[in-house]
Simulated scan of single mutants.
Amino acid sequence: MEQMGLTQATLIFIVANVFLSIIGFTNDRFVRWGLLTTEGVLKRQEWHRVLVSGFLHADPMHLFVNMLTLFFFGPLMEFVLGPQTFFLVYLGSLLAGSALALVMNAKNMDYAALGASGAVSGVLFSFCLYAPFEMIYFFGIIPIPAILFAVLYVAYSVYGMGARRDNIGHDAHLGGAIGGVLLTILLKPEIVPHFLNEISGLFG
């Protein structure tokens, strides 16, 4: 995949994530205010957390990984979808990730999460729709066709949601991925025949 230069909406999201995350790294009160928690959202109706939490990160490495992924896939999908549609896909995926996390953890008042992973997953899955056989380099080394990556990603997320053996927000990842696919199809319906043509081309 040829790397494009940073585009407007992608740059806005990267700057917003970096700016708010850096504030959070040195301001615990700000993080507690924006953190996605079931108690805060479902019990106290603090709905800002659903959005703000997607621009906060646990540490610099968490921020770096998410922004690196957005840097590689954001500009291309912004070019394909158009800036306004890309903007909606990103934010919609973020909200979808937060929503699924809240639904899956509704009975756990200790649940808390933060990070742009839901939004970035949405962008990544939008890319998988557009270029299903483009290689995605897993861990930056192992080439995997985008469509296979998507299948493995969903399988791992479902497994992680059930196992609950780590601190990864599998719920938000899966919710964001689903949101990215649905929003891309809804806002850019011509991508469906494009995807089907790519699939049929494999067997043609």
Rank of each mutant, 00 (worst) to 15 (best):
M4A: 03
G5S: 10
T7W: 02
T10Y: 04
I12R: 06
I14H: 03
V15Q: 09
V15D: 10
A16I: 09
N17T: 07
F19S: 11
F19D: 00
S21F: 08
I22C: 14
I23S: 00
T26E: 02
T26D: 09
R29W: 13
F30H: 01
F30Q: 07
F30L: 08
V31E: 01
L35F: 13
L35W: 08
L35K: 13
T37P: 10
T38H: 09
G40F: 04
V41L: 06
V41D: 06
L42N: 06
K43M: 07
W47P: 12
V50W: 06
V50F: 08
V50Y: 10
L51Q: 05
S53L: 10
L56V: 14
P60Y: 15
M61L: 15
H62T: 12
L68W: 07
T69I: 14
F71R: 06
F71G: 04
F71S: 05
F72S: 04
F72R: 01
L76M: 01
M77T: 10
V80Q: 06
V80I: 13
V80W: 07
L81I: 09
L81N: 06
L81R: 07
G82C: 01
G82P: 02
P83E: 15
Q84D: 05
T85Q: 05
F86N: 13
F87Y: 11
L88G: 13
V89M: 07
Y90R: 02
Y90N: 03
G92T: 08
S93I: 10
G97I: 12
G97D: 05
L100C: 13
L102T: 11
V103Y: 12
K107C: 02
D110L: 03
A112E: 08
G115K: 03
S121G: 00
G122K: 02
L124P: 06
F125A: 03
C128L: 08
A131C: 05
P132I: 11
I136H: 08
Y137E: 05
Y137G: 05
F139I: 15
F139V: 14
G140S: 07
I142A: 08
I144L: 13
I144P: 05
P145G: 06
A146Q: 08
F149T: 08
A150Y: 00
V151S: 10
L152H: 05
A155D: 04
A155W: 09
Y156D: 14
S157R: 03
V158E: 14
Y159S: 12
Y159C: 11
A163H: 14
A163Y: 09
R164M: 14
D166N: 15
D166G: 10
I168R: 09
G169S: 11
G169E: 13
L174A: 00
G175H: 08
G176I: 07
A177G: 14
A177N: 04
A177E: 06
A177W: 08
I178W: 10
G179H: 10
G180W: 03
G180P: 02
T184P: 04
I185V: 14
L187F: 13
E190I: 01
I191P: 00
H194M: 06
F195V: 07
L196R: 02
E198G: 03
E198A: 15
S200W: 09
G201N: 09
G201H: 10
F203Q: 15
F203M: 15
